[in-house]
Design a protein around this nucleic acid. Structure first.
Length: 290
DNA sequence: ATCCTATCCTGTAGGC
DNA sequence: TGCCTACAGGATAGGA
């Protein structure tokens, strides 16, 4: 579910809500996440105070006192939910954090692809989950020139390149399609074959789309919710994602779905032609003929 | 190093 | 209604 804008929304929610609160207990469910939660985690978190909430890509970093950080990844279906009063039982809740004042923070994740662990803050950069991540494009706006240089020799399609968290941290399946559509670049192009101008366009749309999606609290299809169980509204802005067979909002052509790396990709073959040069030639011809 | 495939897990939508 | 298949916002191990 959650890509950078959704995780950033949850981060802001957490920052406004749980910073300053002190944990009195953590209860774990018996079920294993893909990366199991340590049984020691409740003991390590007990008595700790939340000092700040940061983010790198899709990872939430909840900093506590005594040099501890709670690393959290939402996977496909993870949610953090905050309650003033403990609600009735919910399914798939893997951790319940109770604060000193009686408020609660629950981690729910039906598909169990999420991750939660505690690590010393001073060694956070060496945590295997964090160590290999590329730059966060919101914290560090990416320049087209930098992407151009970094992509030389890359033979994977640009769509897969954008999803690679080692290259850029935070872009997921929805926003990769949206970014490429707005940039007018076909998802099938080899990343290493994009021109500097094309990378400039992609860099600009990475910044624009992520910012816009954050402003709208992300995209909700089914699972994703804010800390208060509200949906995000960026779904109204989607130009191609999940719109196969529907008309392109820019040119009226038909949006197509293809599969790349076992993930769906949506694009408009007319706006995003595979051969940019050919398209430019057609336009030039039309002008000379007029 | 890079790329591709299969896999982890549950829920839901759509076809019959 | 039920049964079946395909698919879903992600990351990663293992092999080419």
């Amino acid at each position: 579910m959650p890509e950078l804008p959704e995780v950033e929304t949850v981060r802001r929610n957490l920052e406004a809500t749980v910073v300053g609160r002190t944990i009195v207990s953590v209860r774990l469910s018996g079920k294993k996440l893909r990366d199991p939660i340590s049984r020691q985690l409740p003991l390590r978190l007990r008595g700790r105070r939340i000092e700040s909430v940061k983010r790198h890509g899709k990872f939430l970093l909840i900093h506590l006192d005594q040099d501890l950080t709670l690393i959290s990844h939402l996977g496909m279906s993870g949610r953090w939910l905050f309650f003033d009063d403990s609600p009735d039982a919910m399914s798939h809740v893997h951790a319940r954090i109770t604060f000193k004042d009686g408020t609660e923070l629950w981690f729910q994740d039906p598909r169990r692809f999420g991750l939660m662990r505690v690590t010393p803050t001073s060694r956070l950069a060496r945590d295997p989950a964090i160590a290999d991540l590329g730059p966060d494009p919101v914290a560090t706006p990416l320049r087209g020139e930098w992407l151009f240089e970094r992509s030389r020799g890359a033979r994977a399609p640009i769509k897969s390149f954008l999803l690679d968290q080692k290259r850029i941290a935070g872009i997921g399946n929805i926003y990769a399609s949206e970014i490429l559509h707005r940039a007018g670049v076909s998802p099938r192009r080899q990343a290493g074959a994009l021109t500097a101008d094309e990378w400039n366009a992609v860099a600009a749309e990475i910044a624009y789309v992520l910012r816009d999606a954050i402003d709208r609290m992300g995209t909700t299809f089914s699972m994703y919710r804010t800390l208060w169980n509200e949906p995000g509204t960026y779904g109204d802005q989607l130009l191609v994602y999940d719109r196969a067979g529907e008309p392109c909002r820019r040119c009226g052509g038909v949006i197509r779905r293809i599969v790349q790396g076992q993930r769906s990709t949506f694009y408009c073959p007319r706006c995003q032609s595979v051969r940019r040069g050919r398209r430019a030639l057609v336009i030039a011809r039309g002008q000379s003929g007029a």
